[in-house]
Write a protein that binds this DNA or RNA. Structure first.
Lengths: 126, 126
DNA sequence: CGGTTATATTCCCGTCAAGGAATACACACG
DNA sequence: CGTGTGTATTCCTTGACGGGAATATAACCG
């Protein structure tokens, strides 16, 4: 399950930035400091929050500490998202149906052209 | 795509609770007040935050305002998640390979590629 | 209109998080 | 051992956020 600390950790833009950096590859603190433009203490504090939220873990290499992403919480977030995704798919479903209906003789350009790939999706149970 | 306001909105447990309530069905404010055990003003303020984050929208029915979930941000979150999901799949992959290796040198053929896509991903864009 | 219900907004206060500076700690190296 | 580098922690200040009480707004009803 996702606890509070997870959401709190992700609530901060700098921390999301760090997460993004760590997605590319694990990095020592110095690199993160430089990339974020924050002071080193501030960065360390953010890293601590991320650590305590279980989002990252640290490997000690001599004096340096190399931070890396932990995939588990991401999976948890995915799970959290699941029920909402169902709703979202239902909407696309409805939109698709309406498109179908509309293309029944009239070329209706329905609203905003978001890249709606409402073609394939897992069966939504209701 | 995902605005700061989105993460900020989701950072509060009460607001996540509200989101959960609205997942079941749209609800008028009064119901949310009761379910959350918060004061009405406080609830209204949370709803405002959610509104401004684009997570919910409101339908006015006489004096009552019925709040409902907006699916779009959920889709955005899904998109945000995509690159991380890749990492996570790779981990599972690696784990699978290691398990394979451990179970003697029979023809190990577990996902040399990332076929472990549990579901198709919507186009990701940050 | 006047009253009632349903919701939003304002005011005020306590708490908490973020940031920088200074400092402490850990480890390598000579 | 001492020195230097890399990182963590503490201290302090400031600003944002959450909560309740009081108040304002809007819509329905008679």
């Amino acid at each position: 399950m996702l606890h509070d600390s997870f959401w709190t950790a992700l609530a901060d833009p700098h921390r999301r930035r760090i997460i993004g950096l760590l997605l590319e590859r694990p990095r020592p603190v110095g690199e993160i400091v430089e990339a974020c433009g924050l002071s080193q203490p501030s960065t360390s504090k953010h890293l601590k929050v991320l650590r305590e939220a279980g989002l990252v873990h640290v490997d000690q290499e001599a004096q340096r500490r190399v931070y890396a992403l932990d995939p588990a919480p991401i999976a948890d977030l995915d799970a959290w998202l699941a029920p909402y995704r169902r709703l979202w798919n239902e909407r696309l479903d409805a939109l698709g149906r309406r498109l179908d209906q509309a293309s029944d003789g009239t070329d209706a350009d329905v609203g905003t052209d978001t890249d709606t790939d409402a073609k394939e999706r897992p069966p939504s149970k209701d």
